[in-house]
Each structure stands twice: as C-alpha cells, then as structure tokens.
Amino acid sequence: MIPASYYLYLSAILFVLGIIGVLVRRNLILILISIELMLNAVNLTFVTFSNYWGVYDGQVFVLFIMVAASAQVGVGLALVKTIFKKKAIVDVDKFNLLGQ
C-alpha cells in the first residue's frame, strides 16, 4: 500500500506547478489550464484524506469542485473569446487596463 504522504507530495507538486504556470505563462488559455491543474491538485488532496480517514465527505467535495471547475472553465473560455474578438490578443501582459 502506498502511504498517504506520497499522494500529498504529488498534490503539492501539482499545485506549485499550477501556480508557476499561472505566474509565468502569458497565454490566457494556458493560464486557465494551470488553474485547472491547481484545482485538481486540491481534488487529489481531498480524495487522499477521504481515503485515509475512511469518510466520504471528501469524495463528495471533489464532485462539487469538478462541477464548479467545469462551469468556471465555461465562463473563462467565454471571457477569453470575447477579449480575443475585441482586441485580437491572448497575451495577459498586453492586457493591463488597470495600470494605465
């Protein structure tokens, strides 16, 4: 049996990778994918703990998060599409209206 800590390390690594992706990538779509990665890292943690303690709350949470994530992806992609239609860019660095 693989110890729970392994899963946690994996999920931490995935989460950090997601953060790094969000921070260094410029492409909007890739940022969205990185956010998905972070969410799934969290999912993994939930499942791990659910298995470890033998309660199923964590599994239920994961289902909820998946639904929320898919909805969020829908909204996010719609935003990306709108931005692309208006400005023909997908680069976030070119998109700094707040700082101007």
Binding site: I19, V22, L23, V24, V92, D93, F95, N96, L97, L98, G99, Q100
Partner: peptide, 14 residues
C-alpha cells in the same frame, strides 16, 4: 503598486 498586470497581483496573492 497598481501595475495592472494580473501576474503581479497573483504573485502578491501567493
């Protein structure tokens, strides 16, 4: 502090 760059905000957040 207000650069308008999303990554700066996220960095401070993280």
């Amino acid at each position: 502090l207000q650069t308008g760059l999303i990554r700066n905000y996220i960095l401070s957040f993280v």
